[in-house]
């Protein structure tokens, strides 16, 4: 049974969309990630136009992050002050990101740039995760315990405009979180991702936030960034497909809950190794499209699409 998507202007099998949303929701619930970095390339892969895929993914991530934030909020694991500082940088970044997106659409390079960005991103995340998780697995086999540093003192502590973040027990400058938020905003606007996989390590290593507060806070800030990105795309690229969004939201939310339950039954490092392999497969797929000569060198797009 196929459904006609009013903005994407194509009809597509509804069960394909539901299973895509479900599987990506399952993975995101299992691994605690937003899933946007898998959702956007998969949507493009099944034939959704790039602009619709980016705008609609952003909207879907809003729902996933709201759902995730509530859970962390109830346990007091969201640093609101830090979240607001990150959001202020992020909103600026998302304006820049959507402008970049529009410019690249006009000159016809959006598909290639998105593919390159996704390839670089997925390849580096996949490799890092695979290396990290395999080390942990190796250590587990050798029965070694790894000592972790409790607190990192770096340049983030020496910049001006220092302020206290009580929830995170930090006294650092607001400049690094604003910059981090800004970069995530740009990525979100151009790629339709939440950016938690960059945000989480950045918060731990650059800001020195306690790991327990990081996931909730990053989810909290992603709600706002992806909300702004959704609105910007709705008003500038007119590419937000509400029908597609609703199908993906419902299926991914259900998938995510099943993912969370499954994750509790498996070891973290095994999960991460598994995700790393999935991510690398998607990266290889994107690379193939970039590097292998296409069947037809020509492609066309409608000029009225973005205006």
């Amino acid at each position: 049974m196929s459904i006609y998507l009013p903005i994407a202007e194509i009809s597509i099998n509804i069960f394909l969309l539901i299973s895509l949303g479900g599987v990506i929701g399952f993975l995101s619930g299992m691994f605690g990630l937003g899933g946007g970095f898998l959702m956007t390339p998969m949507l493009i892969f099944i034939g959704i136009p790039t602009n619709v895929a980016v705008a609609t993914s952003a909207n879907q991530i809003v729902a996933a992050s709201v759902s995730g934030t509530i859970g962390h909020w109830r346990q007091g694991l969201v640093d609101i002050k830090m979240g607001i500082v990150l959001v202020s940088g992020g909103i600026l970044g998302s304006f820049v990101g959507v402008s970049i997106f529009e410019y690249l659409s006009d000159i016809g390079q959006i598909d290639a740039v998105i593919s390159i960005l996704y390839f670089v991103l997925l390849f580096s995340i996949g490799s890092l995760m695979l290396i990290e998780s395999s080390q942990v697995i190796r250590d587990r086999i050798r029965k070694k315990t790894v000592k972790k540093k409790l607190h990192y003192h770096n340049w983030a502590h020496r910049l001006p405009f220092k302020t206290k973040f009580y929830t995170s027990k930090l006294y650092i400058s607001v400049i690094p979180p604003i910059i981090i938020g800004f970069v995530i905003g740009i990525l979100s606007g151009t790629m339709g991702i939440g950016g938690s996989f960059i945000l989480i390590p950045a918060m731990i290593y650059f800001l020195g936030m306690p790991t327990s507060k990081v996931i909730g806070t990053s989810l909290f800030q992603i709600i706002f960034i992806t909300a702004v990105v959704t609105l910007l795309h709705a008003t500038t690229t007119f590419a937000l497909d509400a029908v597609l969004a609703v199908i993906l939201i419902i299926s991914s939310v259900i998938g995510a809950q099943i993912g969370v339950i499954t994750a509790n039954k498996l070891r973290g490092e095994d999960l991460r190794a598994l995700l790393a392999i999935i991510v690398l497969v998607v990266a290889a797929q994107i690379a193939a499209e970039l590097f292998i000569q296409p069947d037809d060198l020509f492609n066309f797009s409608h000029m009225a699409n973005y205006k």
């Binding site: 909207n59 729902a63 996933a64 759902s67 959704t230 609105l231 709705a234 008003t235 509400a242 609703v246």
Partner: peptide, 25 residues
């Protein structure tokens, strides 16, 4: 979506918010 893009964007957000909230609960 074409006549009231901002309202359309906000509506989509509201739907996302509600579904996210309900599912968490």
């Amino acid at each position: 979506a074409n006549s009231f893009p901002l309202t359309y964007g906000f509506t989509s957000l509201l739907i996302a918010l509600i579904i996210g909230w309900i599912s968490a609960d």
